[in-house]
Amino acid sequence: MAFSQETIEFIKKECQRYETRRSAILPCLYRAQKEDPNNQVTPEAVAEMATLMELPEVQINEVLHFYTMYNKKPVGKLHVQVCTNISCSMNGGREMAEHLCKEFNVNYEEVSSDGRYTISRVECLGSCDTAPMMQVNDKYHENLTKEEAVKLLKDM
């Protein structure tokens, strides 16, 4: 899949913005991921970015693989990231994650058969005071119970 004209322009503009083009890799990767129908960054997208940004593919790939926020595999419409770090785990975060997997019949990091859900376990999202919590796409949902989480997701 080739980038849209807007994305191409975005990438070109970002490249002007910093002292080195390498610094523009982060925002450009985000943009590429947003545009992808499966919410991921494919090797083809990296190759296209490399040409547009005049950078070696490998340097973009290093950044892509360093951050877990970039998806290297397809994810569902709703990317559910359940925190399983200390505070959340103490308040049932792990069990909540397990429960969601069962409920939507999907393994961690995979896409449910209807294409809607991908459940991931992640480290602290900085919302420990409202544990347990999950992030669905860009939004935080806090002070949850398993049941509430399921309902929230079904209603989205």
């Binding site: 070696p56 593919e57 490998v58 340097q59 790939n61 290093e62 693989h65 360093f66 951050y67």
Partner: peptide, 9 residues
């Protein structure tokens, strides 16, 4: 030639 990189964390 930029073949090598460090991936993951």
């Amino acid at each position: 030639t930029n073949e090598l990189g460090i991936f993951n964390r």
